[in-house]
Amino acid sequence: MSIALVDYGAGNLTSVRKALAAVGAEVYTPDGPADLARARGVIVPGVGHFGSTRTLDQAWRHAILERLDHDRPLLGICVGLQWLFAGSTEAPDVPGFGVCQGVCDRLPDIQPATGARQKVPHVGWNTLALPRWSRLFAGIADGSHVYFTHSYAAPLARGTVATSSYGIEFTAAVEEGLVSGVQFHPEKSGQVGLQVLRNWLTGVA
């Protein structure tokens, strides 16, 4: 079961690779879009700035779409989830993959409900709300904690299967057919995170 971990220069992939190995995935880093052809599943990771996804150009997009046409699932992690949306105000000139509707935006410095100042970035363990069943969260309890580190977040969308709150409610995970994404870091979220990765892999034939 060969999983392509797309390295587009957005951060360190050691931890993601290690966690995928721990749940039994065979992972490779494709040399380029053409090297995606042998992938049974594709993971787009990422930390930092949305602008880094500029590297995922038309050739990459076509290669990923081609995989989806062959029923090969896609998982975006962190900035990789944000990339699934139309774009982000963090880098307005960089289009997202556009599978999910809406634009990612900066988390608020002021909690709208209380008027209290809050720190951005949102760093640490926060709870998940699971409004409906999804493959990603099978066997995972509503209210489980996962590890986040981000300043921008995706809005609620049709495919939202997990939300979290930090001043506002945002999409913590999406699942739309073969396309999934998580804003948190499953590779850093203990047993819950490993279970999310395991669940995703069950959809990789």
Binding site: A10, G11, N12, V47, G48, H49, P121, V123, T149
Partner: peptide
């Protein structure tokens, strides 16, 4: 330099 290379979270 490190924030640009690995992201501020690192």
């Amino acid at each position: 330099r490190l924030a640009e290379r690995y992201g501020s979270q690192a």
